[in-house]
Design a protein around this nucleic acid. Structure first.
Length: 508
RNA sequence: GCUCCCGUCGUCUAGUCUGGUCUAGGACACAGCUUUUUCACAGCUGCAACACGGGUUCGAAUCCCGUCGGGAGUACCA
């Protein structure tokens, strides 16, 4: 039988990178063995806007390039893939368990259970729900009273359950530690530990790879599998992803954790995939860079670490830089063009996300629909000049916005450090005159002209070049100066030198 | 409280099953140097860890016990 894995997200309208990693492990495992990867939506009937939220999730998967063989949009032989629509199946399975005596009706109400719990706490013993055996008369009386009941699984006592976890190894649990658990609420809705077993069995899932927080639940699920007579899948519980530099679980408070934020910043799917695979998984002692194909070929569960790993934005950024180097200028032009065309929209989003009450907005609209407009003519030259400085696509805005605007915005620190210096006004004034006449206005000519000027006046090159850079770009750092000037062109260069001169004539 | 999981440089990890090749290797980050008109890239150098305490052994990161620390579960949440 081929490998069948699944990812079963709750449609919360937000794709956490920790969840994406879990999904990736599932996907990788299925792709490696030529099996199937199933997407199942663990929604509950009460949730609203499920479709919108599912859309956000699918968007993330599509971007990552993790395709699914069965699930929303594509359907499949085990449809429906929404838990809220599988009520009939849960009902069938629950009936079977009632018939086989594995579950019983629990007529208790919340107040009674709370009292029992309190009593257990008082006696300093662990509370384990154990159903009372109701006589026929009691049941009749409760029904007459109109009392509702939940269906509970009767946990067999005195057994030791052993889970052979593919990541954690063998984990043992005595059934005496498990309380009888509810599988169906009085209103007929199923609970996770039950529904997920029915779904996994129905969908013939062979490998359940999920977050570690489910490890303890697995023992209850094992019992359900057994009672229903379903074959057991292989379980693998992956450790949670911790916040940067900590051992606490990664949460929304710890900076960007939504996949959409990385998409909007212009990360590469392959870099994200490489990074996510590397948190908590390693192939050997030294390989860091893995392509999609490498990952599919080399991934295995036994190399997944059993201890939690923390999210490391620096490492992601570095990997992104590595993958960025593999792109051609044309590819970079295509990917950065939307940012240039929607600069203000991106800047607005970027400031919004820094607000404390920021809520995930999904992928920015202009990144979803490719623009039909041709990219600005200088874009390729700007990218060429930026070289390896361009790490993510939004860097075109962070690093090169001045190439696409008419006026400059001077960075105060840069002005202070490079322009408010002895002799700078004379240098700029002289160079301005030279730039009016220099022909052609290109890199070699410009370079020669500036060099000649510096030699003739015995000016220090660093002083000249840095002053010119800040005067024309407003920034202290950037691509080579002559590249900047040539891209800016004569008119804008002169205009900006004038602007700088005006500014310098005023006291700081 | 009880049950279970986890514990190697600041971070991600190799090594743990099958004790010696580990005076613990690689990567990110950081610091310094080289190159450079700035930054980035590249190259070099440096910094830095076996949670703690016992035990077994000629020998322990590796095996055993305990302690401490972190996490999960203990729901009519998922």
């Amino acid at each position: 039988m081929s490998v069948r894995t699944r990812f079963a997200p709750s449609p919360t309208g937000f794709l956490h990178i920790g969840g994406v990693r879990t999904a990736l492990f599932n996907w990788l495992l299925s792709r490696r063995d030529g099996g199937q990867f199933i997407l199942r939506i663990d929604d509950t009937d009460q949730q609203r806007h499920v479709e919108d939220a599912v859309g956000l999730i699918l968007e993330g998967f599509e971007w990552m390039g993790m395709d699914w063989d069965e699930g929303p949009k594509v359907g499949g032989p085990h449809a429906p893939y929404y838990q809220s629509k599988r009520g009939d199946r849960y009902k069938e399975a629950a009936d079977a368990l009632v018939a086989s005596g594995h579950v019983y009706r629990d007529y208790s109400n919340e107040a009674e259970r709370a009292a029992d719990k309190k009593e257990a706490e008082y006696q300093k013993r662990a509370f384990r729900f154990r159903g009372k055996v109701n006589s026929e008369e009691e049941i009749a009386a409760y029904d007459a009273e109109g009392r509702t009941y939940a269906l509970r699984f009767r946990v067999p006592l005195g057994r030791a359950l052993i889970l052979q976890d593919a990541i954690k190894g063998p984990v043992e649990q005595r059934t005496d530690e498990l309380g009888d658990f509810v599988i169906v609420r009085p209103d007929g809705s199923p609970l996770y530990n039950f529904a997920s077993v029915v779904d996994d069995a129905d969908m013939q899932i062979t490998h359940v790879v999920r977050a570690e927080e489910h490890l303890a639940n697995t023992f209850s699920q094992l019992l359900v599998f057994e009672a229903l007579g379903y074959p057991l899948p292989t379980f693998a519980h992956v450790p949670y992803v911790a916040a940067p530099g900590s051992k606490k679980k990664l949460s929304k408070r710890d900076g960007a954790v939504g996949l959409d934020e990385f998409i909007n910043e212009g990360y590469l799917p392959v870099a994200m995939m490489n990074y996510l695979a590397k948190i908590g998984w390693s192939y050997d002692a030294s390989t860091e860079v893995f392509s999609r194909a490498d990952l599919i070929e080399k991934f295995s569960l036994d190399k997944v670490n059993s201890s939690p790993a923390s999210h490391d934005p620096d490492k992601l950024f570095w990997l992104q830089g590595e993958w960025m180097k593999t792109l051609t200028i044309e590819e970079k032009v295509e990917k950065t063009a939307p940012y240039v065309a929607n600069m203000q929209a991106w800047i607005d989003w970027n400031s919004r996300r820094k607000l404390p009450d920021f809520r995930s907005e999904g992928v920015l609209p202009f990144l979803k629909t490719p623009s039909t407009e041709p990219p600005p003519p200088q874009l390729a030259a700007v990218i060429e000049a930026l070289g390896d400085r361009l790490k993510t696509f939004c860097d075109i805005i962070k690093l090169g916005s001045y190439f696409f605007t008419e006026d400059v915005h001077f960075d105060p620190d840069a002005v202070k450090k490079r322009l408010r210096k002895e002799g700078v006004v004379e240098i700029l004034t002289s160079l301005r005159k030279i730039f009016v006449e220099v022909e052609p206005f290109d890199v070699p000519t410009l370079e020669a002209a500036v060099h000649t000027y510096a030699e003739q006046t015995s000016s220090h090159m660093g002083l000249v070049v840095n002053a010119l850079r800040v005067a024309t770009t407003g920034q202290a750092v950037g691509p080579g100066l002559y590249d900047c000037l040539a891209i800016l062109g004569r008119d804008r260069s002169l205009k900006r030198i004038d602007q700088a001169l005006v500014m310098l004539s005023q006291p700081s």
